[in-house]
Amino acid sequence: MTLSWKRIYAIFNKDLKDLSKNMYVSSVLIMPIVLAFLYSNMGEVTIELHYLVINMTLASVTAFIQCAVIAEEKEKHTLRGLMLSPASLTEILTGKSLVSFFLSIIAIVVCAMITGYEPTNLPVIAVALVISMLFYLALGTIMGLLSRTVLEASVIFLPIIFLFGFGSLLVLLVEQYPALSFIEYLPNIQLVEIAYDVEAGLGFGDVWLNLVILLAWAVVLSLLTAFVYKKKEMD
């Protein structure tokens, strides 16, 4: 079955209009930008701080907005109609992900300009960010499908924003508590490791394992998203 870009665009256009009317959700865009301004006024911004802002953007903009868009559809009881429409799973999820995807790119670029982040190897960072976005889009979709309202989505998403937005701070605990070593494999931590390697002059051939780990997270979450979507479709 071939993708219908007309259907994808229609879904994207509808979500864009709905989001522009929802100031509560769209105001989330301000949070990482304010954070970027705060850090930019603190003097020299380290890689750790650059990616604290970027990871916060991925968690709050990419994942939360995606979650809220899906949850709002459920709250308005329009998601069921979309599921029963001729649009396929891929078309629906692609159309509903494009808004969050483009807003994330805009937010990351704006934050990078504010903090003055200029990666040494932009292609590597760009690939890592795109893969990371796929993970966060899948995560947001799952949480949206499991939420009944936007308000409920906001509450249950707070721990996720903390874990993936400020999760790099948890690395300090690994030395004291070896049982928490799994934290080092979280997508946000892998992204920071890639950034450090890039600044050290390394390229694709040196960070491929980190990229594979990121891709594995994205694939697993995408498969889980399809499973949850199908389950909700049959409920």
Rank of each mutant, 00 (worst) to 15 (best):
Val99Asn: 10
Ile125Arg: 02
Leu145His: 12
Met113Asp: 11
Lys96Cys: 04
Ala87Pro: 05
Tyr117Gln: 05
Glu184His: 10
Ile108Val: 14
Leu137Arg: 13
Val174Trp: 10
Ile142Glu: 15
Leu151Lys: 13
Val99His: 06
Glu91Phe: 00
Ile142Pro: 10
Thr115Cys: 02
Leu172Trp: 08
Leu169Tyr: 15
Ile106Asp: 11
Met113Phe: 13
Ser147Glu: 05
Gln176His: 13
Pro119Glu: 05
Leu129Met: 10
Lys96Phe: 11
Leu137Phe: 00
Leu98Gln: 07
Phe166Tyr: 10
Asn121Ile: 03
Val124Cys: 03
Tyr117Arg: 00
Leu134Gln: 07
Asn188Trp: 04
Leu163Ile: 14
Phe157Thr: 06
Ala200Val: 00
Gly116Thr: 07
Glu175Ala: 12
Val174Phe: 09
Gly144Phe: 06
Leu202Glu: 08
Gly95Tyr: 06
Phe157Ser: 15
Ala200Tyr: 14
Leu151Gly: 13
Ile194Ala: 12
Pro123Asn: 03
Met143Arg: 03
Tyr196Asp: 15
Val109Cys: 13
Leu98Ala: 09
Gly201Arg: 02
Ile131Lys: 00
Ala107Glu: 07
Leu122Ile: 14
Gly144Trp: 03
Gly167Arg: 06
Gln190Thr: 05
Ala138Lys: 01
Pro86Arg: 00
Ile183Gln: 09
Thr120Tyr: 14
Arg148Tyr: 02
Leu163Ser: 08
Gly201Tyr: 04
Ser168Phe: 05
Ile183Gly: 11
Ala107His: 03
Leu139Gly: 08
Ala138Ser: 15
